[in-house]
Design a protein around this nucleic acid. Structure first.
Lengths: 349, 349
DNA sequence: GTTAGCACTCGTCACATCAGAGTGCTAATC
DNA sequence: GATTAGCACTCTGATGTGACGAGTGCTAAC
């Protein structure tokens, strides 16, 4: 059932050609362009066999062959070779990421931009999922008589805040006490842990005013924690796909765009994917069955995991795209490793 | 040069018909559907005159007439009558906005959703521009040895924060002093005012540690203020336009989608538009010359101004869309009037 | 001023035709 | 037995043609 060396060569040639030109490739053009030392007729015979094995398909009798999902899968798993990025691309990535390195979200957005610019595909990047982040402290700050700010700070410096309208007056003393008690109670626990525990722990009622305040604050506390879990999703180059013949029909293009309209759904899907470079081709996806989706993960301080990805037709340059993504995620992880180790670097000396 | 009563009637009929069916309308169908008491031939003569005056165009000899931008402008300015929203739509708007009223950004997003759902066009909503917002206080909070949080709070409870990496150690005392001095210095000033003043005021150097800290914090302070100015833009129903015959060509659809890819540019454009319901039709726009853009503004506490809008082909139901937008912005302004007066309401009693 | 009548224009649709690309098979060749 | 040349066959896409219908614009009659 294994493919012969020649079959592999022919398959690779067909994939290369089809990825390049987006048109079914015939036996004659393979024979001419790729020096396989055999005639078109022989190639035709092999093609016929490859089709029988499910690696090729046939739009109609008198058209050339088109690689199937199975062929791309074989290509990605065994045929494909890592590509070296051009010096220009490397420089572009390095420069652009370095330029915004102290502003986390902007760096992530730049990563998405770079990815779509270099690959000419639709891309996205998202900030890390923070389920595992530990709470560092909780602070309540007064704004005016009826309004306070609830602020939750994570260990990595991740901050979320909500403005709360209270229906009872508060005292500064109660505010401080409640902040302190909440911090004592939750410090060091992960967001996931707190959100999963069914009971909202009592944080004490040292004084009367605090007890009232607590009633106001605690429900919002949970909602704010949930907010903190939300990842930011940056999408770029959506309109790139209009240039591809695969999406030249308005219906195809619409389906594609609609995928991204549902950001929440999309985010969930992407979070659920494994770490490292993950390629899912055509039918391997449960939605977008005629797309290929490639994701890769970067790390923040070795712990939190963020994702970047591209979406395009199954016909794409797998070798280039995966190489770029690998380079990009390595760069991101490196950038954010430094960020979070600031207090251990020579800067402090 | 004024149009006769009959010409206006015919023009209105043509607009109504064309908006409904998206097909050039002929003299016969006008005569049949709208009881004007004249024959098709007469209508043809009037149409010819209207075309000469620039209110109608002619795709080709044997096609019916199509309203020009000028015709729509006339319609919007003088012919159009306010539409009453259906009870269903009103209820939908009220319910959906009420459901999220204490979470500002979510309410805004819901407004955009409602707008696209009811009009079947692409819509957006943005949070208020906060140039005029006054700074309430500034706070510096420690995270770990080399990291602090800079937090700026506006009068309306609007909060922005940045996580800063320092290259010198800090003391709690310096942090507190700097917070306090910065607050004293900037409290009550508007963001616009602070950002426009060329000199960064000296906030004093009461102790040595503070002077060093200051050098680290002040540059980020400006950048954080700028962040605070950023409005959030929510877009909905982009894919609605694929259903319209105007965008059935892939190129048109692409142009349309590309407009929205540049969020920053788009935001600036929208901020620059006047308050109230503003309609710009076709050529009146400097980009998207074949679209109509309708924006409307809502108020937060009578001061800050946010915008909602729809974008579609010039062929749209101007009367319905403007009425919906008016209703929606009134509702939003009402909602946010209450929000920001909390501390004056009976809740406090 | 209005209208009926009619010639004319233009776009669309269905249909036929033709060239080109590519296959699949058979028989000849290595 | 594998490879190849040759050829009939298939299908697409481009091009052309004619009929049809919608709608105008003009003229002459009302």
């Amino acid at each position: 059932m294994d493919l012969s060396e020649r079959q592999l060569q022919i398959l690779q040639a067909i994939i290369t050609d089809y990825v390049e030109n987006a048109e079914p490739v015939g036996s004659r053009s393979i024979a001419k362009k790729y020096d396989l030392g055999v005639s078109p007729a022989t190639i035709r015979n092999e093609m016929s066999d490859l089709e029988e094995m499910g690696y090729l398909t046939h739009p109609h009798t008198s058209a050339g062959r088109v690689p199937s999902d199975k062929a791309y899968r074989l290509y990605v798993n065994t045929l494909m070779q890592k590509k070296n990025l051009s010096a220009k691309d490397k420089r572009m990535i390095n420069d652009r990421l370095a330029a915004s390195r102290d502003e986390f979200d902007r760096t992530i957005r730049h990563a998405a931009e770079l990815l779509s610019e270099i690959t000419n595909l639709a891309s996205f990047a998202m900030t890390p999922a923070t389920n595992e982040e530990q709470i560092s402290f909780i602070r309540l700050l007064p704004v005016d008589r009826g309004t306070i700010i609830l602020m939750i700070v994570g260990e990595s410096g991740n901050v979320t805040n909500t403005t709360l309208r209270l229906n009872v007056p508060y005292t500064q003393e109660a505010l401080d006490l409640l902040s302190k008690n909440m911090t004592v109670n939750y410090k060091g626990r992960t967001l996931d842990d707190v959100l999963k525990s069914e009971i909202i722990e009592d944080v004490g009622s040292d004084i009367e005013a605090m007890s009232q305040l607590k009633g106001n604050v605690m429900p919002s506390f949970i909602r704010t924690l949930e907010d903190m879990l939300n990842v930011n999703l940056y999408m770029e180059g959506m309109t790139n796909i209009f240039d591809l013949p695969e999406y030249s029909s308005i219906d195809r293009a619409r389906d594609f765009m609609e995928l991204f309209a549902q950001k929440d759904w999309f985010t969930q899907k992407m979070l659920a994917r494994g770490e490292g470079v993950v390629v899912t081709i055509g039918d391997e996806n449960d939605t977008m069955k005629d797309c290929t989706l490639i994701t890769a993960s970067y790390h923040v301080d070795g712990k939190l995991v963020g994702k970047i990805g591209v979406i395009g037709p199954t016909r794409m340059k797998y070798d280039e795209v995966t190489s770029i993504m690998e380079y990009l995620t390595n760069n991101l992880s490196e950038t954010f490793r430094l960020v979070d180790n600031t207090n251990n670097t020579e800067d402090e000396g």
